[in-house]
């Protein structure tokens, strides 16, 4: 698909700005999102190419405005719902519980 991920040759996306002595992960949620993605991939419900497609389907404006592990998280969430591992309602209600709302 002609999505925002297919960016070879685009202009105007800014300087590369490499970070010196960059850590492997920049936040705890990145660690967990990375590991959950690999662990759920091991179930074999989808293949790696399907994971890539799920990330590519993001809204182009969102894709360009979010980080790599946010792309992973978005793709994972789509696949989990699509394959019936969780529902959007379950995610929403678990978030409310974590926030201290109604259980």
């Amino acid at each position: 698909m002609n999505g925002a991920h297919d960016m070879g040759g685009m202009h105007g996306l800014g300087p590369i700005d490499p970070e010196e002595n960059e850590p492997v992960f920049h936040a705890e949620w990145e660690r967990r999102a990375f590991a959950i993605t690999l662990a759920m991939g091991a179930h074999g419900a989808w293949n790696l190419d399907m994971s890539r497609l799920a990330r590519e389907k993001s809204d182009p404006a969102v894709y360009l405005g979010t980080s790599y592990y946010e792309h992973w998280l978005h793709g994972l969430e789509q696949l989990l719902i699509e394959h019936g591992f969780v529902t959007a309602e379950e995610i929403e209600s678990r978030e409310q519980e974590i926030l201290g709302g109604a259980k």
């Binding site: 698909m1 297919d6 070879g8 190419d49 890539r52």
Partner: peptide, 13 residues
């Protein structure tokens, strides 16, 4: 080609 699904042939090529 301009498929709606996944492809590894980038637009620029």
């Amino acid at each position: 080609i301009n498929p709606l699904g996944h492809t590894r042939l980038p637009r620029y090529a």
